[in-house]
Write a protein that binds this DNA or RNA. Structure first.
Length: 738
DNA sequence: TCCTCTAGCACATTTGAATGGA
DNA sequence: ATCCATTCAAATGTGCTAGAGG
């Protein structure tokens, strides 16, 4: 039996307190038991401390080890779906994702262990409806549900393990059952979501968070549905998913066959009725009467009709079936069971995953500790947050257009790091990488630049500012650029090309119901400066990031949209610090014609937002003709160190008081007296920023002790009670340790 | 009336146990 | 006794559809 005693290091540290949220939605929704980690961090740390440590701007100084890269193997398939508007079925029992996330990792230290996590966050705060052949935002998103993280069953495993095979998250399931106890990822139907993959370094049993790398593939953005809305998606799913073979035209469950069966069934029924009702003396009634009713006639007519090609569907598999598209998968024979589902599962997984590694036992311990974290409400921040904090700078709100952004803060390469960080310690994160690898535009994104940007949950946290949101970009926003190879299965599109990710800028500040109206001012001048210290990878999968329009900069923090984008805004030093930006080849220009549905039509591709261009001298200017909404920025960039204190937004005049009250420390003892002692002794100054729900990855205690498998879930519970489902994904709770 | 969700259906795939042969 | 290949059934995944509910 795992216990805290076994792993003293798991003891909650002061920085963790804020991460401990009970899962109970009701309670947490109205009264967070603990102040958001980001808030705590903001209080505890002087702004200057929030800034990431200086990082060499010279890309050449970066060692290959830092260049952790992730490729979406089945990017072409994703692009095909994305071009139409990816829909994911969610059911009460949980439904797998299709396409699934098939990834290739590189740049890891073969000897170090890593944990891979999958989480899915709202891409925007809108609810959608399928109308007129496209998705339209019809209102605000529902309250955010408890965030869950799916841990890859192989975790933790060595870098060699991860790099030696295709990493698949196909076991992850999506559900709309808010009371789900199976560990599935809970999502709202008719909402737009963005999957993220996190690679967390686990240097050894006792130390976590040596480095974090987060990856976002814009083409994997999807809309959740309980039933497919777009016939094109259905066709794609049937054609690509082996499990749906039966519904193919040549299958036994094809429409033709089904119609035929229905006809036969009706015929049988009719016969039965006839038999029952017929005159026993009339033998003719007993004869088969295939077509005796209007229904039969209809059925026959349907059965005889060829499959209805959807002329509006621009998708053409190009003769590439799902199998053709997929890269031969190396079986993950490491125990596919949900890692946290059971200890035994974990043990098996560990054993398998750690094969060939001297520390298989150690790995098991890690898993156990991992589980403990969830049991004892330990924050996953220890794994992610320290890095997350840094992320904000990189992704900067503008990031929606970021193709790939990797932030490497003064963290020594994993292999070189001689001083791994304590497991729970939030002390100086060694490395933070946030990658956005938009390989494709999100054509299905309605021209809803107007979609309100999600508010950063933790205004106080600088990290928030740089939150992942930027990377996630706005779901509702159309991609700025799209690979010309979109929809193709050519090997070329498999590589992570720099695509423009929907710009946050497009986010509509208006909290009111979103409309699919494009945002008019996408070409706003870039923020004066971007104090982001982003250390971009010069990897092939360069990233592109968009600039933040000025109109976004001045938005109230309370505004979801503003919060979403404001991080990137006002980053004074970014412009000159950006080291390099590579623009995607002209080939990125997306043929709009390929998108039959207006709502999904990709806007013209812009390599870099105008604002950003200004700040980045080295970056070639992009065609200004592109749609304002589009701020494609496939580029490789290095980000300068950020000086938080210099950022005006970080010092809003009106703190979000009500929230702070709810998070008062006095409430802590009620929950767990032991936690209160860990709080920073010094009374933090008033919150510098409004407290928005943050989306840090957290290991939270599950209040539902009745759950059959308490260890199964890792909750990333944001601060409830806010009307803003969106928020900064990163919080600085771990930073509070400093 | 419209929209959304659910449960059940039929089919295909996957998985693992059982079996038999080398 | 072990290993390997084959077979089979159960479990699982899939989209479709009718019906319920708001």
């Amino acid at each position: 039996m795992l216990s805290m005693e076994m792993y003293p290091s798991l003891t909650l540290g002061p920085q963790r307190i804020g991460d401990c949220f009970y899962r109970d939605r009701q309670a947490s929704a109205h009264m967070p038991l603990f102040p958001p980690a980001c808030d705590a961090a903001a209080k505890a740390l002087p702004p200057r401390l929030l800034a990431p440590p200086p990082v060499p701007n010279d890309p050449t100084t970066k060692t290959p080890k830092d260049e952790v890269k992730m490729e979406l193997e089945n990017a072409s398939l994703w692009k095909q779906f994305s071009s139409v508007g990816t829909e994911m079925i969610i059911t009460k029992k949980g439904r797998r994702m299709f396409p699934g996330l098939r990834l290739k990792l590189s740049g890891l230290n073969p000897s170090l262990r890593y944990i891979l996590l999958l989480d899915i966050i709202p891409a925007d705060n809108s609810r959608y409806r399928f109308q007129g052949g496209g998705w339209q935002a019809v209102g605000g998103a529902e309250a955010r549900l408890p965030d869950r993280v799916f841990i890859h069953p192989d975790s933790p495993a060595t870098g060699a393990h991860w790099q030696s095979r295709t990493i698949s998250f196909h076991y992850a399931k999506l559900t709309n059952n808010t009371l789900d106890s199976q560990g599935h990822i809970i999502l709202h139907s008719l909402h737009r979501y963005q999957p993220r993959v996190h690679v967390i370094e686990a240097r050894d049993v006792l130390r976590w968070g040596g480095g974090q790398h987060s990856f976002v593939f814009p083409e994997t953005q999807f809309l959740t549905v309980t039933a497919y809305q777009n016939n094109k998606i259905t066709e794609l799913k049937i054609s690509a998913n082996p499990f749906a073979k039966g519904f193919r035209e040549d299958g036994m469950n094809s429409k033709k066959q089904r119609d035929a069966r229905q006809k036969r069934k009706i015929s049988v029924l009719t016969e039965t009725l006839d038999i029952v009702n017929c005159d026993p003396c009339d033998s003719t009634e007993l004869l088969p009467q295939p077509i005796t009713t209007s229904t039969d006639l209809q059925a026959l007519a349907l059965a005889s009709l060829p499959p209805l090609p959807d002329p509006s569907c621009g998708f053409r598999p190009e003769g590439a079936s799902y199998q053709d598209t997929l890269v031969p998968e190396q079986p993950l024979d490491l125990g596919q069971a949900f890692m946290a589902s059971q200890m035994s599962d974990i043990g098996i997984s560990m054993a398998n995953g750690m094969q060939g590694t001297p520390g298989s036992e150690v790995a098991n311990r890690m898993i156990e500790r991992y589980i403990q974290c969830s049991v004892y409400g330990l924050s996953l921040h220890s794994l992610l947050l320290p890095h997350a904090l840094l992320l904000p700078t990189t992704t900067t709100t503008t990031t929606p257009s970021l193709q790939q952004t990797s932030f490497t803060f003064p963290t020594p390469p994993p292999s070189n790091s001689s001083s791994p960080q304590p497991l729970l310690s939030s002390s100086s994160p060694s490395a933070n990488h946030y990658h956005t690898i938009p390989e494709t535009i999100i054509p299905h994104t309605p021209t809803d630049a107007s979609f309100p940007a999600p508010s950063s949950t933790c205004q106080s946290g600088l990290q928030d500012q740089i939150s992942v949101h930027s990377l996630l970009t706005h779901p509702g926003q159309p991609l700025l650029g799209e690979s010309m190879t979109c929809g193709n299965n050519a090997p070329g599109d498999q590589s992570s090309e720099a695509f423009i990710y929907p710009n946050i800028l497009s986010a509509n500040p208006d909290p009111a119901p979103v409309t699919a109206q494009p945002l008019p001012n996408y070409n706003h001048p870039p923020a004066p400066s971007l104090p982001c210290s982003l250390h971009a990878h010069v990897a092939p999968t360069s990233f592109a990031f968009s600039s933040v329009p000025q109109h976004m900069q001045n938005r109230s923090f309370s505004n979801m949209s503003s919060s979403y984008a404001h991080h990137a805004l006002h980053l004074p030093n970014l412009s000159h610090q950006v080291q390099a930006s590579t623009f995607p080849p002209s080939s990125f220009t997306h043929p709009s014609s390929s998108f039959p549905h207006p709502p999904f039509q990709p806007s013209s591709c812009l390599a870099v937002s105008s604002s950003f261009q200004q700040s980045v001298s080295s970056v070639p200017s992009m065609p200004s003709t592109a749609h304002p909404q589009n701020l494609p920025n496939p580029a490789t960039s290095s980000y300068p160190q950020v000086e938080i204190g210099a950022i005006p937004q970080f010092n809003p005049a009106a703190p979000y008081r009500p929230e702070m009250v709810l998070h008062h420390q006095s409430l802590l003892p009620q929950l767990d007296p032991s936690l209160s002692s860990n709080l920073p002794s010094s009374t933090p100054p008033p919150a510098l920023y409004p407290a928005f729900p943050s989306y840090p990855l957290r290991l939270c205690q599950d209040p539902h002790s009745s759950l059959s498998i308490p260890f199964r879930h890792l909750y990333r519970q944001h601060q409830h009670g806010h009307a803003h489902p969106q928020g900064t994904y990163l919080d600085m709770s771990t930073r509070a340790v400093f």
